[in-house]
Amino acid sequence: MTTLKLNSQDITEGQLKDKRFSFNSFGNDGDNISPQLSWENAPEGTKSFAITCFDPDAPTESGFWHWQVINIPASTTSIEQGASGKIASGLEMRNDYGSMGYGGACPPEGHGMHRYQFTVWALPVEKLEVPEDASCALVSYMLNATALGKSTITSTYVR
């Protein structure tokens, strides 16, 4: 049996990610570039993929969504560094900063280490049935309810 596997040339499990992948606002001066991601061994029946980035350590009651891309065709197995805003066949959702696409790491200064969970989701549908202005919570719910498999790389960042 094969297992969906997420890989990256830019982020590493448990390691600090480079500042270029952090947000450029709220007193942070990163480049806000989305990392390169690739995946392999999709489960049988996969018809599309989704990518998410979530910070469970954000000082909110519900964490913080940095990125959600849905409806990526099953024929896609990678995205290049800086692909946010250029993913032609996927739908990028509004992040918790309130903007479309990738929003990099920006934990509050002095708040300590935060984890950033980059996940690829294998889905049994070509299009996830959510409104284009769906909340991050609704998209997350639908991903968890329908996924055939998922794989995560958790990188870290601190200010």
Rank of each mutant, 00 (worst) to 15 (best):
A42Y: 09
F21P: 10
T119I: 08
A74V: 09
W67E: 10
Q68T: 07
Y157E: 07
R94T: 15
T146G: 00
D96P: 07
D18T: 15
G104R: 09
T2A: 13
Y97W: 14
S155W: 04
W39F: 02
V130A: 01
E80D: 11
F49I: 10
A58Q: 14
W67N: 10
A105Y: 06
M1P: 10
S78N: 05
E61V: 11
K5D: 00
E126L: 09
M1W: 05
P107K: 00
A105R: 03
P73Q: 01
A105L: 10
L4N: 10
E92L: 13
L4K: 04
W121N: 08
S62Q: 12
F64D: 10
E132C: 00
G98Q: 02
A105T: 15
A147C: 11
E132F: 07
P131Y: 03
A88K: 13
V130I: 11
H66Y: 05
G85H: 04
L91C: 08
K86G: 11
E61Q: 12
G30D: 06
L6I: 12
G98M: 07
V158K: 01
E129Q: 13
P59E: 13
Q15E: 15
E80H: 03
Q9T: 15
K127S: 11
V125H: 06
K127I: 14
A58Y: 15
H111M: 07
D133S: 08
F64Q: 08
H111G: 09
E13M: 15
G63V: 11
T3F: 04
E92T: 07
G85C: 13
S38G: 04
T76H: 00
D18W: 03
P35S: 09
W65A: 09
I70D: 06
M93L: 06
T156L: 15
L123Y: 01
N28C: 09
A147D: 01
I153P: 01
T60A: 04
